[in-house]
Design a protein around this nucleic acid. Structure first.
Lengths: 162, 162
DNA sequence: CCTGGATATTTTAAGCTTGAAATAAATTTG
DNA sequence: CAAATTTATTTCAAGCTTAAAATATCCAGG
């Protein structure tokens, strides 16, 4: 007796598989993030959001405006304000006026901030590499490329409607 | 001229590939989470953490203790307290004493909460399925199974040391 | 029984996060 | 040029999150 699933059942099964995928993705993300957060905290008295800001600034030679920062990091404008406030307090970044636009602010790494970040970043890469050690280079690339589709697929297309 | 990479270079490349994988994973997670959060908020006036708690309670017929809840969800004890407080306020869950242990509290869905959650869960599955529509059932399962390794691999083994 | 840890939960302080409202400056347009 | 709109940022209120301290209860050994 051959098993035949109709369209609805097939769609339902795919939907359940995708849900499981989402749960796993979330679980993996939480596991890794918890580990990184813990190490940043205990070994450097820092946090992931701070690290993310420094990382974005490090990639950009000339510094970034508040809104560019919030775009790159995909977090809200108001959020960035608070994190940058704290980074300014401990001297890792500076806010400087943008000439030609008195509304805007450019945020840049200080020299201290830059060298501080370099140290952090090297460790961070090792931590991540350790946490994903079950994947070799090839597998990691393959997975990364597949996950890319999630972010690059535009908004609402491919809606299932169950 | 054949390209030959020594051990260190190979390890470095794998490390970089894993780092890219992590960035992609994080980006995908944020993208999906932002979408789900937004829809829960605008269409149901709810939040992801609330949904997660309801989901865990729904799976468990008899309800869960606060600490079981915080284990399942992988969030801190104190965190659960606050979320459950709010769920109690709007009548979706109840806290009841555990007999035999006056320290513990069992949290359970109310009837309202249960039917409320069922509605949410169906929508949620559709949303997720839509967001992962680029993967068919088979691919979704394959990816999920690979990601499983991240969570199931015990703590510190496979450290790279770059 | 009672004392000293172990366990379950809450409280607290600090920081992260969001969406919306408020400011302020730039740009467009009548 | 002035009014209206847009853009860049901050402020605000509410909620999420954590780690650590505080409470309260349980359990085991003496």
């Amino acid at each position: 007796m051959t098993m035949v699933r109709d369209k609805a059942t097939t769609a339902g099964a795919a939907s359940k598989a995708r849900l499981r995928l989402w749960i796993r993705l979330l679980k993996a993300q939480r596991r890794v993030e918890a580990e990184l957060r813990e190490r940043l905290r205990t070994e450097y008295g820092s946090t992931l959001p701070r690290f993310d800001v420094l990382s974005a600034l490090h990639r950009s030679k000339a510094g970034l405006r508040m809104s560019e920062l919030s775009d790159v990091l995909m977090v809200s404008n108001g959020n960035v304000t608070g994190i940058v406030d704290r980074l300014v307090e401990d001297g890792t970044v500076v806010r400087e006026p943008v000439d030609g636009d008195r509304r805007a602010m450019r945020v840049r790494l200080t020299d201290t901030g830059r060298s501080h970040f370099r140290e952090l970043a090297a460790e961070h890469e090792d931590w991540v590499s350790g946490l994903f050690a079950m994947f070799d280079e090839c597998e990691a690339e393959e997975l990364a490329s597949k996950l890319h589709a999630v972010t690059e697929t535009s908004g609402r297309e491919g809606e299932t409607g169950k």
